[in-house]
Design a protein around this nucleic acid. Structure first.
Length: 478
DNA sequence: AGCACA
């Protein structure tokens, strides 16, 4: 089957280890879930979760090599793959013989905690919030925050290791109270360990570091204005400079959100030129490029905090990117350049048909109701059959785009549970396989004849193979 | 879906 030499370090060629490397784990996979999966095979002496760029890998160390071998060989021959929350987990021997650090060994208590705040960007949790949370356990001397591969992190210095331990024991694995977070942040779990530091060297009071023992420490002005995430208002909210490119983070992504879904959503506000999707901190983010700042601003206002699906799924959080022109592959599953006529199976005439519509419609249509849960472009008339489920929900004055009655991801969906771009029942128009692109007309663009149907039929994510009806359902990732 | 504390 396989050639015997020159193989990379792949599955069949690895030397056994007590440590197993697990990948393709679900988001925010907890240590408990890991242990549940692994403990039938032996005693687990150490774990390391949320590893890797996407934080969806983990290491599990068994007490005994044979236990690790039994787990690997069990799943090698099992018809059922290893799963966590229904997601297939791939297991192999780690190329290291033990897990370094973490809980079991080398975790000596000190007075300084290393806190990793999962699932947030640096701008989402202000240093004041961190200070507030940790002050519950004693006087916080100093805080330094930074962004590293592991995510947003903070070093928090207490007077002594007892206080630090108390804080760690109480907060490790917990989430910062929601009322202290911006609305768009869902859960943000704290991973806390002890730092080897004993005294942090804080040079300035800034958005990223504080010394509470020295109120006279100079404030660093450049630190306040220098970087993107430092552009905070007095309330700690982001005030990044406007841009024609939006950065969308998608929270609680229980359904697959594809380029096409995003295109549908964002096209309601103007011509979407380019989209790029990528992973960040275990979540999904996307850059969406409009031709101009105004359109982006309208879209941002209207979409911020809204969910693509009802039930709080796929909640959008938008900020301005510092990009102005994305350099993306013309057509693949992670990115799209709609300005290139051919590449995206883009019907050229359609692209050309709406050259300046964006400017025209947005002033009159899509009045924005900030802070209102009404959705996107709420009063825009819907061209019949267009993007049907999106807008009708709004017209009905519902709180979210789509109703998903009593349905949970991973369950079988009732037809009513189809996502917005897929009206219950069947597609509005005939699907042309292979023609997956449709330039959506602007809602409310008076006089613009509705272009024909959205044709998403070719998107596998929208229609799981063997789906019993043609209505497309959210595809709960694997 | 592919190996980790700055």
């Amino acid at each position: 089957m396989s050639s015997s030499s020159g193989q990379p370090q792949f599955r069949y060629t690895q030397t056994p280890s007590k440590v197993l490397h697990l990948r393709n784990l679900p988001w925010e996979c907890t240590e408990e879930e890991l242990v549940e999966l692994c403990k039938p095979f032996g005693k687990i002496v150490n774990t390391k979760c949320n590893v890797g760029a996407n934080r969806n890998q983990a290491f599990v160390e068994f007490a005994d090599l044979n236990q690790a071998i039994s787990m690997v060989s069990y799943y090698a021959s099992s018809s059922e793959p290893a799963q966590v929350r229904g997601k297939t987990v791939y297991i192999q021997y780690s190329n290291r013989q033990e897990i370094v650090n973490n809980k079991s060994s080398g975790d000596v208590a000190g007075n300084v905690l290393l806190v990793t705040i999962e699932g947030v960007e640096a701008g989402d949790v202000s240093i004041d919030v961190i200070h507030l949370v940790f002050s519950a356990f004693g006087f916080v001397h100093k805080i330094a925050t930074f962004e590293k591969a592991a995510g947003f992190q903070a070093l928090i210095q207490f007077s002594d290791s007892e206080t630090a331990s108390a804080a760690r024991n109480a907060l490790d694995g917990r989430s910062i109270p929601r009322y202290l977070l911006p609305e768009h942040v869902g859960s943000c779990h704290l991973r806390i360990s002890f730092s080897a530091h004993t005294d942090l060297n804080i040079k300035f009071q800034s958005h990223r570091s504080r010394d509470y023992t020295n109120p006279y420490l100079p404030v660093n002005p450049s630190a306040i204005e220098g970087t993107m995430q430092s552009m905070l208002g007095p309330d700690g909210k982001k005030k990044e400079p406007e841009s024609n490119v939006l950065l969308a983070s998608i929270e609680n992504m229980q359904y697959a959100v594809t380029v096409d879904v995003l295109h549908t959503v964002f096209s309601a506000f103007g011509t979407v030129q380019k989209i790029a999707i990528f992973e960040k901190n275990g979540g999904m983010q996307a850059l969406v490029q409009y031709p101009d700042v105004t359109t982006a601003a309208v879209a941002k206002e209207a979409l911020e905090g809204h969910c693509i699906y009802d039930g709080g799924y796929c909640k959008l959080h938008l900020s301005y990117s510092r990009h102005t022109d994305l350099n993306v592959k013309a057509h693949n599953d992670r990115s799209r350049d709609y300005t290139i006529p051919d590449a995206g199976l883009l019907p050229m005439q359609q692209a050309a048909a709406i050259p300046t519509a964006a400017g025209a419609w947005q002033s009159q249509a899509a009045p924005v109701y900030p802070g209102n849960d009404y959705a996107i472009g709420a009063q825009a008339p819907i061209p019949d059959g267009q993007m049907a489920s999106w807008d009708p929900n709004m017209q009905a004055g519902r709180q979210t785009f789509i109703s998903v009655p009593s349905t949970f991801p991973g369950q079988t969906y009732s037809p009513a549970a189809v996502p917005p771009y897929a009206p219950a029942g069947s597609l509005p128009m005939g699907i042309v396989p292979g023609s997956s692109f449709h330039q959506q007309p602007r809602p409310g663009a008076a006089g613009v004849a509705p272009l024909r149907s959205p044709q998403y039929g070719a998107q596998p994510n929208f229609r799981p193979a063997g789906a019993p009806f043609s209505g497309q359902r959210p595809y709960y990732g694997q």
